[in-house]
C-alpha cells in the first residue's frame, strides 16, 4: 500500500518555518539518570518560541555525527529548556549522552502525534511503560496531574530490567506518595535489597485491576514492542476497548516529516502518522514479522 502523503498538521512550529534547518540549542543542564542514560535540558536561542504536545519528539543533531529522533521528556507546562532523556545505544546517542552544559545541539521539531489527553477526559487512565519508554510518557503524566480533576483514576504500571535501571526513581516515589495516583513498579530481576514486585510488567495487572474500570479506561503504552504487544493483550482481555488503547512506536528516521520513507511501517510513516497510534490502526500489523 502507498504511504499517506505528508500532512501540514505534522509540520513543526518555529520562527523560521523551515523544518529542515536544525536550530542551535544549548545544553544548560545534564543529569545522569541510570547507567548509560542521561537527561539533557536544551535552551533555544533567545526569543525562539518552543512548545510541544506530550508524546512528540525532536530530531537532535550532534554536529558531525548524525541526527536521531528523541522524545521530549519534560513538562509541557514549562516547555523550555526542552528535556530529553537519552539512552546510549550507538554512535549518535553516545555523542548526545556525552554532551556537557555549554555544548550546542541542532534541534528540529517538535514532530509527530501526541498522546490523546483530550480524549482521556472523564476516563480512567492506565499508563504502561517499560524501560526508557517512561520518557515519552512523562510529559503526559505531568499534564494529567496538572489537570487532575478532569480525569478518573490514574494508574501507572512501570517495568524495568532491574532496580538500578528504574528511570526517574525519585519521581516515581513522589508520584506513589500521592493520593490521586496509583503507581505500581516491577523489575524483571531483583536481589535481596529489592522489596518491590519482581516479574514482567504484565504481571502487575492482577494488582492493578481494582484501580480502573476497563470499559471506561483509556490506555497509553510505551516500551519495547514485545512488551507493548503483551500489554495490549492484557488490556483487551480485561475489556478495554481497542480504540482507546494507544501505543508509541519507534523506527529509524531521517527526515522526520513523512517525506523520505525511512520510518515506514505498513501503510504508515511513524514520524508523521505516529509515533503515537491508536492500537486499532495497527491491530493487523502489530506482531507481524518483517513489517
Amino acid at each position: 500500500m502507498m504511504p499517506t502523503p505528508p500532512s501540514p498538521a505534522a509540520q513543526p512550529t518555529g520562527p523560521t518555518g523551515n523544518a529542515w534547518v536544525p536550530i542551535p540549542f544549548t545544553v544548560v543542564r545534564r543529569r545522569r539518570e541510570i547507567p548509560g542514560t542521561v537527561t539533557l535540558w536544551l535552551a533555544p536561542p533567545e526569543g525562539y518560541p518552543f512548545a510541544f504536545r506530550p508524546g512528540q519528539f525532536n530530531m537532535l543533531y550532534v554536529f558531525g555525527v548524525k541526527e536521531v529522533p528523541i522524545s521530549i521528556s519534560g513538562d509541557p507546562g514549562t516547555p523550555v529548556p526542552v528535556a530529553h532523556t537519552i539512552r546510549q545505544v550507538g554512535m549518535a546517542t553516545q555523542a548526545l549522552v556525552n554532551l556537557k552544559p555549554g555544548d550546542v545541539v541542532g534541534v528540529r521539531g517538535p514532530f509527530g502525534s501526541a498522546w490523546p489527553l483530550e480524549h482521556a477526559r472523564g476516563h480512567d487512565v492506565v499508563i504502561v511503560a517499560g524501560g526508557i519508554g517512561l520518557a515519552p510518557l512523562r510529559p503526559a503524566i505531568y499534564s494529567l496531574l496538572r489537570h487532575r480533576p478532569q480525569y478518573g483514576n490514574v494508574v501507572l504500571l512501570y517495568g524495568a530490567r532491574s532496580p538500578r535501571e528504574l528511570l526517574y526513581a525519585r519521581e516515581l516515589e513522589r508520584w506513589r506518595g500521592r493520593f490521586d495516583m496509583e503507581v505500581l513498579v516491577t523489575v524483571d530481576r531483583g536481589d535481596r535489597t529489592w522489596h518491590g514486585h519482581v516479574g514482567v510488567v504484565t504481571t502487575l495487572f492482577p494488582q492493578a485491576d481494582v484501580f480502573f474500570s476497563p470499559q471506561n479506561t483509556i490506555a497509553f503504552i510505551c516500551g519495547p514492542e514485545i512488551m507493548m504487544r503483551f500489554t495490549v493483550r492484557e488490556l483487551l482481555d480485561r475489556g478495554v476497548p481497542p480504540e482507546r488503547i494507544f501505543v508509541s512506536l519507534e523506527r529509524n528516521m531521517h527526515c522526520g516529516q513523512g517525506l523520505c520513507g525511512h520510518c515506514q511501517y505498513g501503510p504508515f510513516f511513524i514520524c508523521k502518522d505516529g509515533p503515537v497510534f491508536p492500537y486499532q490502526k495497527l491491530a493487523t500489523l502489530f506482531g507481524i514479522r518483517e513489517i
Binding site: V200, T202, P224, I226, M227, F230
Partner: peptide
C-alpha cells in the same frame, strides 16, 4: 508465559547489553 517474556530480556539494547 511471564517467564518467557523475562527470558527475552526485552529491555536490553538490540545487539548487546547496555
Amino acid at each position: 508465559h511471564a517467564t518467557r517474556l523475562q527470558l527475552i530480556d526485552m529491555y536490553a539494547v538490540k545487539g548487546g547489553r547496555p
